[in-house]
């Protein structure tokens, strides 16, 4: 699996709140990152000191030309960051640290927040399955696991209403350490839209560099399985619409029921 981003390293953890005075940055909700848009690219500054350049749904080859066009702006932003934080490095040194971001089964410390053992194990399994079994099979394995978890939770707890189901899912996510699950209200929903969920601090993908893949098949299938079991119908679909793996900073899932 390869990350499709170009990353610089300040070499130290940083306090993002000090950079908020640079008015071209905006804080993303519930994430330890600041972002700015740069001639079609997204420049993200992480609290672990990494500065990541990427474009949503584009691979590295496709963003390289834009990086050349934006090189002066990139240099200028890095200079601003160094000056604001009082770091004892030069922009030239940081630029020379730049590399194409590679992910592997041993590369879990992309986002150095409190990661417990189970998150490390979960991500190791996830990336190992992609590396060894290929994208299709890896997705199927995660889906099977997620579906079983979702169905079992509903079978055991037997929620009596959709509201109760949603409360059950929120607790399940907390108990399992999968992330913070919340619901999203949509102004214009469709009659078949059952729910829209947002996950912050996702155990599967939070902090992962963009890999042009939606990574959270386990979560997606968990939601699908839970609704399928709750409604006693199979024609339920769950789609992941946002994921760190695609360059977003949280996960989002839409659950639909189709005709019975």
């Amino acid at each position: 699996m390869k990350a499709e981003a170009f990353t610089y390293d300040l070499g130290t953890r940083i306090d993002l709140s000090k950079l908020e005075k640079l008015n071209y940055f905006r804080r993303t909700d519930n994430s330890d990152a600041l972002v700015t848009d740069l001639k079609g690219l997204t420049l993200m500054v992480l609290s672990n000191g990494r500065i990541r350049l990427f474009e949503h749904e584009r691979d590295f080859e496709q963003i390289r030309d834009k990086m050349l066009t934006a090189s002066i702006e990139i240099y200028s932003i890095i200079e601003d960051i160094i000056k604001t934080l009082g770091l004892k490095v030069s922009a030239k040194q940081i630029i020379s640290s730049g590399r194409r971001e590679e992910l592997g089964t041993d590369d879990l410390a992309l986002f150095e927040r409190k990661q417990n053992l189970s998150t490390h194990v979960l991500r190791s399994l996830l990336f190992a399955s992609y590396d060894l079994a290929g994208d299709f099979q890896a997705e199927r394995i995660s889906t099977q696991a997620g579906e079983q978890i979702g169905r079992k939770a509903v079978k055991i707890k037997k929620p009596q209403s959709k509201e109760e189901l949603i409360r059950l899912l929120k607790k399940l996510f907390d108990d399992l350490g999968l992330g913070k699950l919340s619901t999203v209200e949509r102004e214009k929903g469709s009659v078949t839209l059952e729910a829209v969920f947002r996950v912050d601090d996702c155990a599967l993908c939070s902090g992962v560099a963009p890999v042009n893949k939606k990574l959270c098949n386990l979560t997606r299938a968990l939601l699908r399985g839970a609704f399928a079991e709750f409604k006693h119908m199979e024609s339920i679909t769950a789609n992941e619409t946002k994921c760190w793996g695609m360059g977003d900073t949280y996960c989002e899932f839409e659950v639909y029921s189709l005709a019975k």
């Binding site: 199927r140 889906t143 099977q144 579906e147 399985g225 199979e234 679909t237 769950a238 789609n239």
Partner: peptide
């Protein structure tokens, strides 16, 4: 992906 999910769920569950 949804289609494969349905097939997989039908078979496994």
């Amino acid at each position: 992906q949804n289609m494969i999910d349905l097939v997989q769920s039908s078979v496994m569950h």
